[in-house]
Write a protein that binds this DNA or RNA. Structure first.
Lengths: 255, 255
DNA sequence: CGTCATTTTGAAGAGCGTCAACTGTAGTGG
DNA sequence: CCACTACAGTTGACGCTCTTCAAAATGACG
């Protein structure tokens, strides 16, 4: 993983950048910091002076309830911006934590403001924020409407595509260094039920998860089983077919 | 509701705009269109040429599953932008539908691009997008971790504050023209359970919901009961106290 | 070898979903 | 004015999914 242009690489997934924009990004990026697994990078309520960009490892956004329950609201992969929020908002509404050992570079807020002035980079940053939001919507759909096994299947397929996009998959498998407890926190399920659901998915020959390694045993069946449509990830070239979705409970007439 | 500057009014919740920026917004906005209740404004997969801004009424974002299940992923109130997404993304990842009769103005994509060039307006649009995202995270927390009654209590309190911010509350009550089925679709619950939960909340003297009207019977108790903290709404002046949150299931050590 | 976190298994039960029937209300058309 | 329809709300009965509690098994590490 070449540290310096992980951000450029991500932003170029939206559109090609000019040589000078790429050079600018290379200049702007400082040396990466090492982040210990299971430590917070940024806490809810804080207002860090720098924006962090994840270079390697796996991190998450999460929110806590006073009773100790936790919801992961995003998984962050290399190239993702941890707190673009700070460029406009005055504090974080959630925390960001490292799940595995991570490398991250810091970019001063001032530089981010400069980046926004450059049209191509500015648009790419909008793209990054809006696709994050689209992923969030898909997670809400999962937690609200899908069964435990569909939810897990969907998550593992999403991470398969996202990690593939940054070159971190190996054939049909990839590393996802999370515990079953963390999977539970992400999916709104107990770790006990995660455990049983994983066994079921494994039994059905769809996927295997063990020791932080995911193996997609049957990509096509998994996609069908999860009801996965990649539209929401806005990947290069991945333009979804028009949704022939049917309604049953919905009351919105086909206006 | 003065149609024309509903957008200016919203963007000024972030920061004061210069006279010329306000004038610009007034110029840019065309006549409002009337939208029939329960009809889609924008469908998933489409790429409308204009961005819609809601002027009056209540709308929602939603996603469908092939089995007909539906998840509302946002409620939109006057001033909200329906599809800012289109300014960067090439299609919608979700649908937007009117819940009540609505008025909305259309702004051509080209104009939105112009708006982004104006620093003050551009920053305000970032603020709008990022607060939408923060609300989405709070919803995911609700659906993932809160009980049915906490979820409903939290939603009604959120809408209380959001509608208050646009002057649509009347003392401790406001209109929320949604059915119990739609509430169920929003909270990931069945309408039957919504019904029973509403009776429970009413019985506890927290709130009443009938015929599309919400009455907050005991604001303070409701807020406590829902575990509501207004930090995530980024309202003018509403800076949350530092969260004294405690963890129980979380494994992230106090960094 | 012992400690610790995580995974795994079992058993019991709560919360919520589904199904189905009934009520209330508004709209439609004879 | 009265069927007739349509849909939201309401209630009861039943059961499934998932949670909780508890304990044992596994594995990593000093």
């Amino acid at each position: 993983m070449e540290c310096d242009n992980m951000l450029a690489r991500k932003l170029q997934r939206f559109s090609e950048l000019a040589r000078e924009d790429i050079d600018y990004l290379d200049d702007v990026i400082g040396p990466p910091a090492v982040l210990t697994p299971r430590r917070d990078i940024i806490r809810e309520g804080e207002a860090p002076e720098d924006v962090f960009v994840l270079i390697s490892g796996l991190a998450c956004r999460y929110k806590l309830l006073r009773n100790g329950r936790r919801q992961l609201v995003a998984l962050l992969v290399p190239g993702d911006l941890c707190n673009l929020h700070m460029m406009v908002l005055d504090r974080m509404d959630h925390s960001v934590g490292a799940l595995s050992q991570c490398l991250a570079v810091r970019i001063p807020k001032r530089i981010i403001q400069e980046m926004l002035q450059r049209p191509a980079i500015g648009r790419a940053l909008w793209w990054a924020a809006l696709t994050d939001e689209a992923i969030l919507r898909e997670w809400l759909l999962s937690v609200g409407q899908r069964s435990a096994s569909e939810r897990l299947a969907h998550l593992f397929y999403e991470m398969y595509l996202r990690l593939q996009a940054v070159g971190l998959t190996d054939d049909n498998s990839y590393r996802l260094p999370v515990t079953q407890i963390e999977l539970g926190d992400a999916m709104g399920l107990s770790s006990v039920h995660i455990n049983r659901t994983l066994q079921k998915l494994r039994g059905q020959g769809l996927l295997a998860f063990d020791g932080g390694k995911v193996v997609i045993l049957d990509p096509k069946s998994l996609m069908t089983y999860a009801g996965f449509r990649d539209d929401y990830l806005f990947l290069r070239g991945g333009h979804g077919r028009s949704s022939g979705a049917v309604r049953k409970r919905s009351r919105v007439p086909p206006g």
